[in-house]
Amino acid sequence: MLLLFGKIGDYTLYYLEQAGRMGVFLFQCSWRVLTPPYRFFPVIRQINFIGARSIFVIFFTGGFTGMVLALQGYYTLRKFGSEGLLGSAVALSLIRELGPVTAALMVIGRAGSAMTAEIGIMRNSEQIDALECMAVDPWRYLMVPKFIAAVISMPLLTAIFDVVGIFGGYLVGSLMLGVNGGTYFQGMYQSVHWVDVEMGLIKSLVFGLLIVWISTAKGYFLHWERSGGFGAEGVSRATTSSVVLASVTVLVWDYLLSAILL
């Protein structure tokens, strides 16, 4: 019994400690993002990695999400005889909900895991220590470009996702299922307002920050991992847990933000 309490206390302490570390980490990174010296090229490189190279994936997932939304929506709406609302249904669900969340999940899988692995390996092979010993700030050198790039890339990727999704929906709804194209877009124009776009924008900004925060911190604190952050397996475990944690956090925050913004 005492052992059980001890274990519970042990776990609580560990997770509190980790939460504290993550908090300090976010503060340190944000502070450095806001203070000079500013670096231009590393940010561009990271935008290329996190943003530009994700466009293909975002195109595909966005297109098919829009298509399946139109397909499902059409059959549901037809029961009420209101196929004309298909455009607004597709657009609203994409812009407010599915766009930010799905794009975030894709970026976690593509760029988040890579960031954790990259920084984790650098931690493991003493490269981060080497940076510190050279009096090069590892936060400024490694994290800041990633933070800026993620916060810039996420809304743009989400916007692409939304647009492609809406056209995917048009493709299925109008060309395959015979909804009038004019009606599809007219319904969209009438029902989508700036608040909806704003909601998607805020969500994608927050998700971008959450993704880069969790992914980089998981790599940076590899040596503190409870399960042992050693060697290739340590990196693989940290990567897995960072993807899981980031995905769960994004979904939880999606609910919280929806509740606040609605």
């Binding site: 092979s125 003493e126 220590d129 080497a130 010993c133 050279m134």
Partner: peptide, 12 residues
């Protein structure tokens, strides 16, 4: 300081 690490720690 200059440091030569045991495993060199070059940026691979």
């Amino acid at each position: 300081f200059g440091v030569l690490f045991q495993n060199v720690a070059l940026f691979d």
